[in-house]
Design a protein around this nucleic acid. Sequence first.
DNA 1: CGCAAGTTTGACGTACATCAAGTAGTGTGG
DNA 2: CCACACTACTTGATGTACGTCAAACTTGCG
Lengths: 243, 243
Amino acid sequence: MSVMLQASPLSGTKQNAQTVAFWPMIDGGTHRQTGESALAPLQGIGATLRFKRNAAVFSEGDPSSHVYKVVSGAVRTCRVLMDGRRQIADFFLPGDFFGLDWQSEHAFTAEAVSDAVIISYPRAQIETLGDTEPGIRKLLMALLCKGLSETQDHLVMLGRQTAQERLAWFLLTAMKRTSSSAKLDLPMSRLDIADYLGLTIETVSRGISEFKRRRYITVAGAHEITVRNADMLQALASGEIEA
Amino acid sequence: MSVMLQASPLSGTKQNAQTVAFWPMIDGGTHRQTGESALAPLQGIGATLRFKRNAAVFSEGDPSSHVYKVVSGAVRTCRVLMDGRRQIADFFLPGDFFGLDWQSEHAFTAEAVSDAVIISYPRAQIETLGDTEPGIRKLLMALLCKGLSETQDHLVMLGRQTAQERLAWFLLTAMKRTSSSAKLDLPMSRLDIADYLGLTIETVSRGISEFKRRRYITVAGAHEITVRNADMLQALASGEIEA
DNA sequence: CGCAAGTTTGACGTACATCAAGTAGTGTGG
DNA sequence: CCACACTACTTGATGTACGTCAAACTTGCG
C-alpha cells in the first residue's frame, strides 16, 4: 500500500500524507452520492491522506491517477485564468467522491478548503474492479450522472440568475447537502463562495447582509448561517419573486 | 420495433416520427464522442425519428426512457425559468449522442435547432447491453466524462469570461466540433447563441460586428461565419489579451 | 414581390465590479 | 489575560460592461 503520494505545496509544515488506512471507512453516512451499498470491494485499496488548508490534492494537467473521497474537511475544484480570475466548479463535503472527471488529465485543480482527511483509490484498480463488480460500475455511473446534473444546474445559475438569486440558490443547495438542517456551518470563505457563484466577494457580502436585514437568515461568526425563511429563499432562487 | 414515439408539438404539419431504420447508421463520421468502434450491438435497436425546427425531442421532467443520436440537423438542451429567461446547456451536431443525463427524469428540454433526423435507443436495452458488452459500457462512460468535462468548461466561461471572450470561445469551440474547418455553418440563431453564452442577442450581435471590423472573421448571411484569425480569437478567449 | 422573422445599430439605464476605508474576528507572544 | 498583528469580512462611493428599449435594416420564404 503506497504512502507519501502528495506533499503540501503551500504550507511550510511537513505533516502531509502520513497515515495509511488499514481498513479505510467507505461510507461516511447518508450523503450526496447514490447507491453506496455494496462497496465492500473498495475496502483495502484506499490510502488515507491529510491536507492542510489550501493545499492542492491535484492540479490542473496532472494525470488523473486516483479517485478521492472526503473523510473530513472540505475540498474545492477550481480553475484559475491567466489574469487571476478564478472559477470554483464544486465543493465536496465528507462522504463525497471527487476526481473522477477522468479524462487522462485533470481539467481542474482540487484544493483543501479547510484541513482535510481524504482517501485516495488508484484509478487503475477502480477500473479493473469495475469490470468484474457491477456494483462499482453502477456507483461510478451514478456519481458521474449526479455530477453532470449538478454541474448543469450550476450552469443555469451562472448563465441566467441575478446575484441575489445565486446566493439564495447557494444557501438552499448547502442546506440540502448538509442533511438539510437549517443551521449551516460553511467551511469556505466569502471569496470561495464568490468564485463559486461567479460574483465578487463584496457582492456576496452585500447579499448576505440584505438577507439578514430581511430576516431570511441569521449569521454568527461569518461561517455559521442559520436559515430562518427557506421558503422566501426558494421563491427568490426560482425567480418567483424578484430582488 | 416501435414507431410513432413522438409527435411534433409545435408545427402544424404531421410528418414526424415516420421512418423506422432497418439498419440505422451508427457512425456518422469522426465526431465528438470517443471510442465509436465496436458499436455493432447498437445496431437494430434504434428507431429513426424526424423533428421539425423547434420541436421538442423530450421535455424537462419527462422520464428518461431513451438515449438519442443526431443523424442530421442539430439539437439544443435548455431550461427556461419562470419569467422566460433561458439557458442553453449544449448543442448537439450529427454524430453526437444526447439524453444520457439519465437521472430517471430529464433535467433539461431537448429541442431541434433545425429540422433534424434522430435515432432513439431504448434506455432499458442500452443498460442491459452494457452489462454484457464492455464496449458499450466504455462508450457510455466516455460520453458521460466528455459531457461533464465540456459542461465544466462552459461553466468557467459563464462564471468568469467577458462577452468578447465568450464569443471567441464559442467560435473556437464550433471550429473544433465541425472538423476544425475555418468555415462555420452555424445552425442556431443569434438568440440561441446568446442563451448558450449567457448574454443577450444584442451583445452577441455587437460582438460579431466587432470581430468583423477587426478582420478576425467574415460573415455571409448570418449563419455562415469564416474564421480568419483563429490565433487572435484564441488569445482573446484565453484572456491573454483583453477586449 | 411583399411580408414576417431575424439581425444589426443606436441611445440610455442598471446591476454588479472596482476602488477605498473601516470593522470584526483569529491567532501569537508577552 | 491582554496587546498586537494579520486576515477576513463589511460597508460606502464611484465606474462600467452589459442589459433594455427602440428603430432601422436584411434575409428568406409563400
